[in-house]
Amino acid sequence: MRISIDPSLCQGHGRCYDLAPDLFGEDGEGYATLLVPGGEVPAGEEDDARLAADNCPEAAVLVYEETVAGDGVVGEAAP
């Protein structure tokens, strides 16, 4: 699973870093930042990532649920 923040949508509500503090942080103005390299969600923290996305009023938190396609290529499903 991979996460990202759309900076054009984020307004600094901070729901993501309240609910998933291991994945998201705040910058000096309160906007969300990613704490995990490349947005890769560590195993076991997928629910936190989904919770953050489900509570963002601006829909600025994007979660890509990775799915393994038939040919073995890892694809991405948008939220």
Binding site: Q11, H13, G14, G30, D54, N55, P57, A59
Partner: peptide, 20 residues
Amino acid sequence: RQVNRHAAFGLGIHRCVGSH
């Protein structure tokens, strides 16, 4: 309630500056 995208602090550029 687990899923709660409420707008109590507004939406867009005027998100309540004091929300935290």
